[in-house]
Design a protein around this nucleic acid. Structure first.
Lengths: 203, 203
DNA sequence: CCCAGAGTTGGTCAAGTGTCCCAGACGCGC
DNA sequence: GCGCGTCTGGGACACTTGACCAACTCTGGG
């Protein structure tokens, strides 16, 4: 094995662990499966990382970062009016889920696992705070981008948006019904548009 | 151990398994933990049930039934107008989640676990079909109960409702923010009210 | 050059897992 | 009363898991 500092090795293990979780689920992400994915000997694991749970912390961090990229991608769509923009942004998110279902499922599995693990029980709150902040950021940017003003506090709307994306994702993962998911997004877009008013944000 | 038919024992094991999953999570629901909860010897397990995964099927069934009771409870609230009724019904669901968080988390964990398990991969689709049907049933009953008419097909609205409840539940499980969850429900109720029109259902 | 500290690695251990087995106990129909 | 099929339950097995160790190798600074 190429020589590598402990912190580098830890990062490499986290990336390998994410690949395993994505492909086979959290319960399959054993120390042996992770080092196999990273093509390392088993001994490397506990030299670079104190425990398996500790590594999962890093994996959650990776997932959150990845989620951020997906969310910001929704901003890039150009649309005719607020309603169309909202719908397209949500549709872009659904596309992301469809193209990497394992990744999205990994997010849920990690949250649930962390909630059950005493040593990681603080993670989910932080994880969702990041999601909500991310959604708020996107919504704020949308105000300027679309020339609208949200009629309720962005933080509250952000939580509603995350609620919708989580709910749509969960149902789609379960039944893989593309048409139904798109229809739900259409309805959600209609509903969210009701919270937008024309005008400059800082009027 | 009291003498018991195999099918009775299987049902008792399923109930015990649900208790364990509720309390400690799916990953802790080992054959030994389940028989301990049911106060049975280990040997009883594979006499009554061919495999652990097979038993989890029964557990999912129990969870879905329980979810049905919670959903129908929302119908019993009396309210001043459609919007208030919707909000109260969603709030009632949130109360249910708050009083039995482990149960709701069990639902998600079982779905995720089943998705990863080849022999149970058909379960989530069926599970969510039941949820959607249940929501549709409640929404249809609400038409008569509230003297309104939904302006879009009930099946589509049902999926949106499940999306909202799932999303709200997931976020609350993660950060336990009661106020934020209630606020999200208020907003969702506003949004859903937009799909209700006054009038008789079969006009 | 050399040596101390960082990194590597295969082997090992105890704990826990799902599943199976089989000798025995029980109860119901004949 | 008797036998047979159903049920009981303790033990065992093969396997996986997270964690740890001790011996080895490398590398860079003095």
């Amino acid at each position: 094995m190429a020589r590598m500092s402990a912190s580098e090795r830890r990062a490499a293990l986290a990336r390998a662990a994410l690949v395993v979780v994505d492909r086979d689920g959290v319960h399959a992400a054993t120390t042996r499966a992770i080092v196999a994915e990273a093509q390392m000997p088993l001994g490397s694991f506990h030299y670079a990382v104190p425990s398996r749970d500790e590594l999962l912390r890093d994996v959650v961090e990776l997932v959150v970062e990845g989620e951020g990229d997906a969310a910001l991608a929704g901003l890039l769509v150009d649309a005719a009016g607020p309603r169309d923009a909202i719908r397209r942004a949500l549709a872009a998110y659904l596309d992301h889920v469809r193209q990497a279902p394992g990744r999205e499922q990994a997010m849920f599995e990690l949250t649930q696992y962390a909630l059950r693990s005493p040593e990681l029980s603080d993670l989910p709150a932080e994880q969702y705070a990041r999601y909500h902040a991310l959604a708020a950021q996107v919504l704020s940017a949308a105000e300027a981008h679309l020339g609208i003003r949200w009629t309720i506090p962005v933080a509250e709307l952000a939580r509603l948006v995350v609620t919708v994306t989580d709910g749509v994702t969960l149902a789609w993962l379960a039944d893989r019904d593309d048409a139904a998911a798109e229809r739900t997004i259409d309805l959600a877009a209609d509903a969210l548009t009701a919270f937008a008013a024309s005008g400059t944000p800082t009027a």
